[in-house]
């Protein structure tokens, strides 16, 4: 059965940003280049651009995330959009209103763009299938599936520090199983031509057949980090720490937490990334997080430019 890719319009341009998977490299590069123009611009202290003047961006967070929502909000405001933040918890669904009811109600308020965070994989696809043709949907994280803007800002960060993707070894460490960030990063890295992507973690946190995504699987962190150029640590959610998948946060830190000792196996100029928020002492040691190789704070800065770029490009595609 043929499925038209739901995030591209008839010209092959981005109509929605739902996942990195299946996007051609030129579209990723276009976003990174656009972001770069915004980064250099904010250096010149120009805070607002008129690109989204008169447009309404609705931040629809069905799952709480103040950080991500805030970066989208700042990005939209820098492009002169009107921003509406909605945290939609279980209460509206308990009133019997469905996800699509919510969307149609908001559309009636003339939304031009929805930024959607949802606990279920695929929810932004369902929304994108049912919005009016001129409305854009940006996936701000759905279940375990995708977090495309996070992956794009990570790619931006890697390009910023390493320039070229084609000679890199990148390791992603931790809870791959539950991580939408890891999935989007893997697709972005392989699409942009990174020759070796590794995932490192215990077998209980490794998705079935993950090697089919084009990655090498390691269960030993020192081996997995050997000679890598980029180390991406993932957040370990609290609910994973006790019992079923891992015996304890302490044991996880001992074997998979990033310390200076373990980092020494990577290349000397390797950079360390983390999507935040960090669990210090669980997946990463403070000495690394605050150390010379950490680029975790610049990631946050780039995140705003990348989200501006995505919004600006979507608004330009009809």
């Amino acid at each position: 059965m043929a499925h038209h890719h739901p995030q591209l319009n008839q010209h092959g341009e981005l109509q929605h940003l739902l996942t990195i998977e299946g996007l051609p490299a030129p579209i990723l590069t276009q976003i990174l280049d656009k972001a770069e123009s915004f980064v250099s611009m904010s250096d010149h202290d120009v805070k607002k651009l008129p690109i989204l003047t008169g447009k309404s961006v609705f931040n629809l967070f069905f799952e709480n995330s103040t950080r991500t929502r805030t970066t989208f909000e700042i990005a939209a405001k820098r492009l002169s959009a009107d921003v509406v933040n909605l945290n939609i918890n279980a209460s509206s669904t308990s009133k019997g209103e469905t996800l699509l009811d919510t969307i149609h109600n908001l559309e009636a308020m003339h939304a031009d763009m929805f930024v959607v965070r949802h606990a279920e994989s695929g929810a932004p696809f369902l929304i994108a299938r049912h919005v009016a043709p001129d409305v854009h949907v940006i996936n701000a994280g759905d279940g375990r599936h995708a977090h495309p803007t996070q992956a794009l800002l990570d790619m931006y960060t890697i390009r910023h520090y390493k320039q070229d993707f084609s000679n890199l070894r990148v390791a992603i460490v931790g809870d791959i199983l539950h991580s939408r960030v890891a999935r989007s990063q893997i697709h972005a890295l392989t699409t942009l031509g990174v020759p070796e992507v590794r995932v490192i973690g215990p077998k209980t946190l490794m998705p079935t057949s993950v090697e089919k995504l084009g990655v090498h699987v390691y269960h030993d962190m020192n081996q997995g980090l050997k000679d890598v150029d980029v180390v991406i640590m993932l957040r370990l959610q609290n609910e994973r720490m006790n019992g079923a998948l891992l015996p304890s946060a302490q044991e996880f830190f001992k074997y998979y937490g990033l310390t200076l000792d373990k980092l020494a196996h990577a290349k000397p100029d390797a950079i360390v990334m983390h999507p935040g928020p960090m669990n210090r002492g669980v997946e990463i040691d403070s000495a690394v997080a605050d150390g010379a190789q950490s680029v975790i704070l610049p990631q946050v800065t780039f995140g705003i430019a990348v989200r501006m770029a995505v919004m600006a490009i979507l608004a330009g595609n009809r």
Partner: peptide, 15 residues
């Protein structure tokens, strides 16, 4: 089904 497709889609698998 717990396999490559579910892994890609981030759907929890039934092995």
């Amino acid at each position: 089904h717990d396999g490559e497709v579910a892994t890609r889609m981030g759907l929890s698998g039934i092995p």
